Amino acid sequence: MILREVDRSRVLLALLWRMAEALVGSVTVLLGVLVVLLVHSEAARAAFTAEELSSLVEVLVTAREPGFDLTIFFLSLDTLMYCRLPYRSRLVPRVLSVLGTGSFAIMLVGPPSACCCTSTRTWS
């Protein structure tokens, strides 16, 4: 990788954050698939009462929200590193690196503010 020559430890840190993003994002997407399978499965309807199935689906859907926020958080962290490394090495025009760094710095603020500023969702 070209960026290895810039700063090996920062490249590895960015890779670690990218893997965390992929792992959390995959689990979050699989929770959504599990919800669809539970709702449309005859076996699930036979195994659970309607209230139990509704509660289980509500828990899984509620667990997806922080999963997406955490995915965006890790995406922002690793992309900040990947934008900063070309800036330091001058591999791309600095304007592009600064634009990417600024954009993902704004995205980094989004998930924590969403957790603090939103009310609890109630399902009817």
Rank of each mutant, 00 (worst) to 15 (best):
S119R: 14
R8C: 10
V6S: 02
L60M: 10
V36E: 07
T120G: 02
A20R: 04
R18V: 08
F104L: 09
C115I: 02
L99T: 11
C117H: 05
R121K: 10
V61H: 02
A47V: 01
A47C: 03
P86G: 01
V11H: 07
C83M: 10
A22F: 06
S113G: 03
R84S: 14
L3K: 02
A20C: 04
G32D: 01
V33P: 04
L37D: 06
G25H: 12
P93F: 00
P112S: 07
E21H: 08
C117N: 09
T71K: 12
L56W: 12
R94E: 14
L3A: 02
E65Y: 13
D7L: 07
D69L: 07
R90I: 06
G102N: 10
V59K: 07
L99Y: 11
C116R: 10
C116T: 15
F73R: 11
F68A: 05
D7T: 14
S41D: 03
G110E: 01
L3V: 06
Y82M: 14
V39P: 03
S97Q: 01
S26G: 04
M19G: 04
R88S: 12
R8F: 10
V109T: 04
L56Y: 10
S119D: 10
M81S: 06
V39Y: 13
E21F: 07
C83E: 00
R84K: 05
A50H: 13
L70E: 10
R90D: 08
L15D: 08
T49E: 01
H40W: 01
L108R: 01
L56M: 13
V59I: 04
S55E: 15
V33I: 02
R4W: 06
C117P: 02
E52P: 08
C115Q: 13
